[in-house]
């Protein structure tokens, strides 16, 4: 991720302009615009209900936007979704393969739908199954695979025809860490062949793997940049408070002077302050004064989650 893709120059693999989609009273996606360069790994990050799935479906050409346009490799997806389908692959959030078919049968079926030459399909399937660690499961029913294996099989089927644009809707939700590692290894290998990957996730740590990511909230993109720049742009500095009673610490620090935001992260509290050096001592004193007990406070680098919370926290204050 040393190459910063701003999406402002060169040819775009994906471009969306003014996308809107409403479901009854709910405005799922509002006036969304973004562009993704070829070979990028672009992430949509946000809580449930932020509109991530709706975007993915519209990009895949299975859901019409109310307004706006989408171009995939120059093809107008809104007007001609069927022309875009041979070059894209879409993995829905819910397992989309046939559980009553075996691994090999699912692969055969999807290979045929894309009219792959049989030899190509066999070679490609073998290579992908190996990378996914699924070679010995070819004859197993897809429904009898673990969650992680199912997602990897989904990826295998999605990549059989070597799409130009890969759309993954929360592909690693409920997947064990080991399978997740395999999954990402396959995705990284793809970048070299110029495949553009768009994925959505609710996991903040996964967002760090993107070349660029869009922070989403209530159907809008609030910030869109590389993870490094997003972190650099976060207002204030971050202090980590490690305490025996993080809940009490969280409570004690709420409303303290110079504190811009607080985030409880398991056994520690992330405190966003205006000035890390100046506030460190003040906070230590305050914790002792409130009877929370001794706590270790040190400055840390923000993660994407901190950026996200800072972004939404500002809104709450405004």
């Amino acid at each position: 991720m040393n190459r910063e893709m701003t999406g402002e120059s060169g040819e775009f693999a994906v471009r969306a302009e003014g996308l809107c989609r409403r479901f009854g009273a709910l405005q799922a996606v509002r006036d969304l615009s973004f562009a993704v360069a070829r070979g990028e790994i672009f992430g949509f990050v946000g809580p449930d209900g932020a509109g991530k799935t709706t975007i993915m479906r519209m990009l895949a050409g299975v859901l019409l936007p109310d307004k706006g346009e989408i171009f995939l490799e120059g093809i107008d997806v809104v007007a001609e979704p069927e022309r875009a389908k041979p070059i894209l692959s879409y993995m829905p959030q819910r397992f989309g393969l046939y559980e009553d078919l075996t691994v090999a049968e699912n692969i055969f079926f999807y290979g045929e739908l894309f009219e792959l030459p049989w030899r190509v399909r066999r070679a490609r399937a073998r290579q992908l199954l190996q990378a996914a660690g699924l070679l010995s499961f070819e004859r197993r029913l897809a429904g009898q695979l673990s969650g992680g294996m199912k997602q990897k099989l989904g990826l295998v089927c999605a990549l059989l025809h070597t799409p130009k644009v890969l759309l993954l809707d929360e592909p690693t939700t409920g997947v064990d860490p080991l399978s997740r590692r395999d999954f990402w290894a396959i995705l990284y290998n793809l970048r070299e062949s110029g495949v553009t990957i768009l994925f959505s996730t609710a996991y903040m740590d996964e967002a760090e793997r993107c070349s660029r990511l869009a922070l989403m909230h209530e159907g809008e993109i609030r910030l869109c940049d590389s993870p490094a720049r997003l972190k650099a742009a976060m207002p204030g500095a971050l202090l980590e408070v490690v305490s025996a009673d993080p809940r009490a610490a969280h409570k004690a620090l709420t409303g303290a002077p110079g504190v811009l935001g607080l985030l409880l992260m398991g056994d520690r509290v992330h405190v966003r302050v205006d000035n890390a050096l100046r506030r460190k001592g003040e906070l230590e004193a305050r914790l002792l004064g409130e009877g929370v007990g001794p706590a270790a406070i040190q400055p840390i680098e923000p993660g994407i989650e901190d950026v996200f919370v800072a972004l939404l926290g500002q809104e709450g204050a405004a």
């Binding site: 299975v62 069927e82 389908k85 692959s89 879409y90 829905p92 989309g96 739908l113 009219e115």
Partner: peptide, 12 residues
Amino acid sequence: RGTMEELISTPV
């Protein structure tokens, strides 16, 4: 079963 969503994203 949710298989339709993936099926309709293919050229079929």
